[in-house]
Design a binder for these strands. Structure first.
Lengths: 210, 210
DNA sequence: GACATTCTGGAACATTTAGTCCGAAACTCC
DNA sequence: GGAGTTTCGGACTAAATGTTCCAGAATGTC
C-alpha cells in the first residue's frame, strides 16, 4: 500500500492554504493594498485572525506572498501564450489577448494585481519585485521576436527591443483600460489590432513575405 | 481708483485655496486614496482640520474636486500638445512625451493621478468620471487624426479609431511603466518610437508621401 | 463700539484597525 | 490513555482614523 503522506502533528488546519491564498489575491486585487483590512482577509480566506498571523505573517508579508504567486502564474501563462503558437503574429495576439482576458475575468475585479495594484504599494521590496518582473516580461517578448527572426518571419533588422517595449506598454495600457471599465469585447478587438500594428515593417523597409 | 475686490465678510483665510488643492493633489497622487489620512492632508495643505472639513467637505468630496481639477489641467495640456504642432507626427510624439513627462516629473510622485490612482477608488462617481475622461481623450486624438487626413498627411482610409485607441493605450502603458520606476530618458525614447509606430501605413497600403 | 459672519486651533468622539494573547480543541506519537 | 504539538476562536489592547464640536480670533457692516 501507499504510505500515508506524513500528516504533521497537532491539530489539522481547517482550510486549504493555497485556496486561502487565492482568496486573498482576489481581495487585494479588488480593493488595493491600503483598502484591505485584516477583517476583509479573515472573512474571505476562511480562517481566524490568529491563524492568519500564525501562518502567513502580517499584512505586508501576506501581500508579498500573494504577489509572488500571482506573478509566477501570470508569467507562466504569458510564456505559454507567446511560445505555443508557431506564427509570431499569433503569439503576440495571444499575449495581448491573455492580458485582456485576465483583466476582464468575470468573478475577479477588473485590472491586474501587478499592473494596477502593486505599483501603488509603498514598499521597496514590492517595487524591486515589480522592476524585476517587468524586465523578465520584456525579455520574454524579445526572445519571441528573435525566434521570429530565426524563422524568417520578420527581417533581421527588426527593432526587437523597441517593439517588445511597445508590446508591454500596450498590454499595460489595455489592462488599465479594463480597470477603468472598458468591455472585454472592445479590448479584445484592440488587442488584435495592436498585434498587427507591432509587426508592421519600418517605413522604407520592404514588407516581409509571410 | 479701483474698487477693491469685494472681500468676503468674516475672518480671512490663512491659506490659498488653489494652492492647498495642489498640495492635496500631490498627497493623493503619491499615496493613493486609501493611503491618505486626514492628518496627511492637514499637514501638507497648511490648514486645520475644521477648515478642511468646512471648506472642502469630507475626504471623498475633496478627492473628487482634486480629480476634476487635475483632469481639466491635464486635458488642456494634452490638447495643446496635440493641436499646436503642424505635423501629425509631432503632435503624437508631443502627446506621448507629455504623458511621460507628467509621469516622471521631479518633485511629484511617479505615475498619474488619473491613470494609476483613481481607478482603484471604489466609488461610482469616480468610475463614471474616469470613463468620461477616457472618452474625451479618445475623441481628442481621433480629431487630430482626422485633421491629419484633411491635411493629406495620412490616407483617408487611415484606421482613425483603432489607432487612436492604441495611442491612449500606449500613453497609459508608459505612465504605468513610469510608476513602476522606469527612467524618464527611457520612456521618452519609447514615446518617440511609439509615435512613429502608430503612423505606419497598414500592410498592403502604399506609404504616404510626406 | 456692538454685531454678524467667517475662519482657526484644538479638544473630543466614535469607529476602525493591526496585532497579541490564551484557553480550548484536534490531532500524532508513545 | 497521556504527553506533546499545532491550530482555532474569540476576547483584548493600543493606536489610528474620519468626523464633529466649540470657544475664540479676525474681519466687514452699521
Amino acid at each position: 500500500m501507499f504510505q500515508n503522506v506524513a500528516r504533521p502533528r497537532g491539530r489539522p488546519r481547517s482550510f486549504d492554504e493555497s485556496d486561502a491564498l487565492k482568496k486573498a489575491t482576489q481581495v487585494f486585487w479588488s480593493k488595493g493594498y491600503d483598502g484591505v483590512t485584516i477583517d476583509d482577509l479573515v472573512a474571505v480566506m476562511g480562517l481566524g485572525r490568529s491563524s492568519l498571523y500564525g501562518i502567513f505573517g502580517d499584512k505586508r508579508t501576506l501581500f508579498l506572498r500573494v504577489l509572488r504567486a500571482y506573478a509566477e502564474a501570470k508569467g507562466a501563462r504569458a510564456a505559454k501564450a507567446l511560445f505555443s503558437p508557431p506564427a509570431l503574429r499569433d503569439s503576440l495576439a495571444g499575449f495581448l489577448r491573455h492580458a485582456v482576458e485576465a483583466a476582464t475575468e468575470e468573478g475577479s475585479a477588473p485590472g491586474c494585481l501587478m499592473v494596477c495594484v502593486a505599483p501603488l504599494v509603498d514598499d521597496p521590496e514590492v517595487k524591486q519585485f515589480l522592476k524585476d518582473a517587468a524586465a523578465a516580461g520584456l525579455a520574454l517578448v524579445e526572445r519571441r521576436f528573435r525566434d521570429g527572426i530565426s524563422a524568417g518571419e520578420i527581417p533581421s533588422d527588426f527593432p526587437v527591443t523597441a517593439r517588445a517595449r511597445q508590446v508591454l506598454d500596450l498590454a499595460r495600457g489595455l489592462t488599465m483600460h479594463a480597470q477603468m471599465g472598458a468591455s472585454r469585447k472592445t479590448l479584445l478587438n484592440d488587442a488584435e489590432e495592436a498585434a498587427d500594428l507591432v509587426l508592421l515593417p519600418r517605413r522604407g523597409n520592404a514588407a516581409p513575405d509571410v
